[in-house]
């Protein structure tokens, strides 16, 4: 365990050192995040402008959902996409060989090798949005703490889905855009689930668990989540994490290496 932490420290400090070579990127990332935030608020305001509201969700409460969604976007562009989108590349070029030879879990290596600080603005804006909405709604510290648990479950589920999709490249080499499909579907997390018709709700709860990523943590923060849903999120996260591990081991049996 200690060794893994040490390795993690090395991975991330080198990654940050490398990324800081391109400081102008930070300005671009900041502007993009800001534009994205304004656009998201605009998109949401189109619904609330005429007095309509998502059933049982006031404007501020919906902002909490949007804040968590922004946070999630920041998390995926910091930790997930720089690592997991590279699995495909490793398989294609055969460099996965070198990863497998290392005396460390290959899943760990592939999942944490680098991080990109350019997701930081999204993380900050997400927190600001949640903070603003929380203040308007008079949320206390306990509300925030209570939502951290389902939020972590959500992040774990997201990671697992992303990793499994990336791992399918062992069989279908040229599918670097499979994660784009996932990312497209995740956009549904911008709005609380009640905003969708029943069929959509079913799909985004049981097929692609978007509901567990944003709506359930938001409900937990607003103290209206039922315990059964939070427990469900926990089981889902643990199940998916376990499935990811098993799936990766299974996939490696089919890895035949390339050009080496």
């Amino acid at each position: 365990m200690k060794r893994y932490l040490e390795v993690l420290g090395l991975f991330w400090s080198t990654a940050i050192a490398a990324e800081l070579e391109y400081r102008a990127n930070f300005l671009i990332a900041l502007l993009s995040s800001l534009g994205n935030l304004i656009g998201s608020l605009f998109g949401l305001s189109l619904f609330y402008r005429t007095g309509y509201n998502f059933e049982g969700w006031s404007w501020e409460e919906t902002l909490v959902v949007l804040g968590i969604f922004t946070l999630l976007q920041g998390f995926s562009s910091t930790f997930l996409s720089p690592n997991l989108n590279k699995i495909v590349q490793q398989v294609q070029q055969g460099t996965l060989d070198f990863v497998l030879l290392k005396p460390i879990s290959s899943q760990f290596w592939l999942s944490t090798r680098t991080l990109s600080p350019w997701g930081l603005p999204d993380l900050i804006f997400g927190l600001v949005l949640i903070g603003y909405a929380g203040q308007q709604l008079g949320l206390g510290l306990s509300n925030y703490l209570f939502s951290i648990i389902p939020l972590i479950f959500g992040l774990a589920s997201l990671y697992s889905l992303w990793f499994m999709l990336g791992a399918t490249s062992i069989w279908f080499v040229k599918i670097y855009n499979v994660t784009e499909v996932l990312r497209g579907l995740l956009e549904a997390g911008r709005y609380p689930m009640v905003a969708y018709p029943a069929a959509y709700r079913f799909f985004f709860t049981f097929v692609i668990p978007v509901a567990f990523l944003t709506t359930i943590p938001a409900e937990a923060m607003l103290r209206r989540a039922e315990l059964s849903w939070v427990t469900g999120a926990g089981f889902l996260a643990l199940g998916l994490l376990y499935a990811t591990r098993a799936f990766w081991k299974f996939a490696l049996r089919f890895y035949t290496s390339a050009s080496s």
Partner: peptide, 16 residues
């Protein structure tokens, strides 16, 4: 096919 599917945003917003 994956590119076609990744353009699903309008279909999601359709629901809302």
């Amino acid at each position: 096919i994956l590119w076609v599917l990744s353009g699903s945003l309008p279909l999601i917003l359709m629901g809302v």
